[in-house]
């Protein structure tokens, strides 16, 4: 069992992070906390993706020599880390920050209207005003 966990401990960590994030998104009542949870959730997924691209004993996917006139000798694939997950995750990071930005803007709208960011208080206010 321990062997099994160690051989894939990265996946375990990402799953735990993801659980923390997911729990915060659903269970926390403060909206900012929800967003923090969202960020953790997203970076956990990014961690997972990055993990899929790792190759033991390989280096960063930037060719050492300059591209110009690089000969036709075969580049050893095993020497470089898989670049595709990185590309995907760059996009995912941007998406995550954009979502955070929009969500924070919504938070400010909410705060203007209810003067609080606690879910239960807002529910109470809404109940009292009969909306």
């Amino acid at each position: 069992m321990l062997e099994y966990i160690i051989s894939k401990y990265n996946f375990w960590i990402y799953v735990i992070l993801m659980m923390i994030g997911l729990y915060a998104m659903m269970g926390k009542r403060n909206f900012v906390k929800k967003l923090i949870g969202m960020n953790i959730f997203q970076s956990a997924i990014i961690l997972f993706f990055v993990s899929t691209g790792v190759k033991a004993g390989a280096t960063v996917p930037i060719l050492s020599g300059h591209g110009h006139g690089h000969g036709h000798e075969l580049i050893e694939v095993a020497k470089y880390i898989n670049p595709l997950p990185h590309v995907l995750m760059l996009t995912a990071i941007v998406v995550s920050i954009a979502t955070t930005g929009v969500a924070l803007a919504v938070l400010i709208l909410i705060y203007r209207r209810y003067n609080t960011l606690e879910e239960d208080e807002i529910l109470k206010i809404r109940k009292d005003t009969g909306v």
Partner: peptide, 23 residues
């Protein structure tokens, strides 16, 4: 993940796009 699509990137990206940073 490392053997289906990505090897081709590593092999030919630099040559085809004159960009050493494969990412």
């Amino acid at each position: 993940a490392s053997s289906h699509v990505s090897p081709k990137y590593i092999q030919e990206a630099t040559e085809k796009t004159a960009t050493p940073n494969i990412v």
